[in-house]
Amino acid sequence: MVATGCAQQSGVTVGSDQAGRANTASGSMYPAPANPNSPDFSQYKTYSWSSQITNSQNSVFFLNDLLFKTMVRDAVEHEMAAKGYTYQPTGGDLVVNFRSFDQPTEITSNDNLGTGYWDSTEPYAYAGERKVQLDKGSILLQMIDRKKGVEIWHGYASGLTDGNVFDKNKDKVYVAVGQIFKEYNHRADKL
């Protein structure tokens, strides 16, 4: 995966990364050839939550706040529906997971995401050949191809802070999640 960059919007930094994206930063005026490892986003129509999202008692990856976890999940559900995806309790084409970080962090592997972030029945690999730098007050969203067990896309919003604490204002969280999805240029329907 190659980082697609990031944008600063209303005090929040947003970025994303897609599997197999050709590196166009070479300075060439000719488009890079298609990458054979690129996922076919047209095949994804449904999604399911990862096990730690559906576990109603798990709040460890959400600042130990079940209300905040629900708020982010609802915002992501709204954006997935707006992109034409259908939720399935199990067996969706995509497995969706998210995590919040109140302190700056650098993610280089699944180990950096925390034990139990992916359940033992969800052996999804994080593409460790690149790093993601997150500022304090970040939400990281990941989409996994369930059949292949690989991350196909992730997006993040950083800077959700009010002074030195994570800002859990519902409106700001919904705006941040919406900004993450502006970076996701795919739909499940043909609109």
Rank of each mutant, 00 (worst) to 15 (best):
Q57T: 13
V132K: 15
A22S: 03
W49G: 01
P104S: 08
V177H: 05
D119S: 13
S48A: 03
N55K: 12
S42I: 01
A32R: 08
T4K: 02
V173C: 04
S158D: 14
S42W: 00
Y87F: 07
G178P: 14
L113R: 14
G11N: 13
Q8D: 13
Y117K: 10
A19H: 01
T161C: 15
G137A: 06
C6T: 15
W153V: 07
T4M: 04
I139T: 05
A125L: 13
N64D: 14
A25E: 10
S100D: 11
L94H: 00
A81Y: 07
A75L: 06
P123F: 11
V132T: 15
T70W: 04
K148N: 08
D189H: 03
D65N: 13
E129G: 09
G159A: 13
K182T: 09
S158L: 15
E106Y: 07
E122Q: 11
G159M: 12
T4Q: 05
N37G: 04
V2A: 07
S51H: 12
A127M: 14
K190C: 13
L140N: 00
S42T: 11
G128K: 13
G20S: 04
N23Q: 03
H154W: 08
R146K: 04
A82G: 02
Y30A: 04
V72A: 13
I152A: 05
S158Q: 15
G128I: 07
D135Q: 15
D119R: 14
A3S: 12
S158K: 14
Q18G: 02
D167W: 06
S26M: 09
E106G: 06
M143Q: 06
A188W: 04
A75C: 07
I144R: 00
Y124T: 06
G178L: 13
G163D: 05
S120P: 06
W49T: 02
K182Q: 10
G155T: 07
V2H: 08
T54S: 10
S56V: 04
T121Y: 02
G155F: 08
M80P: 01
A7L: 07
N110S: 15
G149C: 05
R130E: 15
P123M: 10
L94F: 01
K182M: 06
T115G: 10
N185Q: 10
K148W: 03
H154Y: 13
S16V: 00
A25H: 12
L141R: 07
D162V: 01
A81F: 01
K69W: 11
D40C: 01
H78E: 13
N58S: 03
K45M: 00
P123S: 12
T54Q: 11
D135Y: 06
S120F: 09
F61I: 01
H154D: 12
S158M: 15
S138G: 03
Q142E: 09
D65F: 03
P31F: 03
L141E: 10
L113K: 14
P123A: 11
L191G: 11
I53A: 00
W153P: 09
G92T: 00
A7M: 06
M80V: 00
G91H: 04
Y124H: 12
G20I: 02
V72Y: 13
G128F: 10
L67G: 09
P89W: 10
P89T: 09
H78P: 02
N112K: 15
F101W: 08
N112F: 15
Y124L: 09
T115F: 03
K131D: 04
V60W: 02
N112G: 14
P104V: 03
Q179C: 07
T13E: 11
Q179L: 14
L113Y: 11
N55Y: 03
S42Y: 02
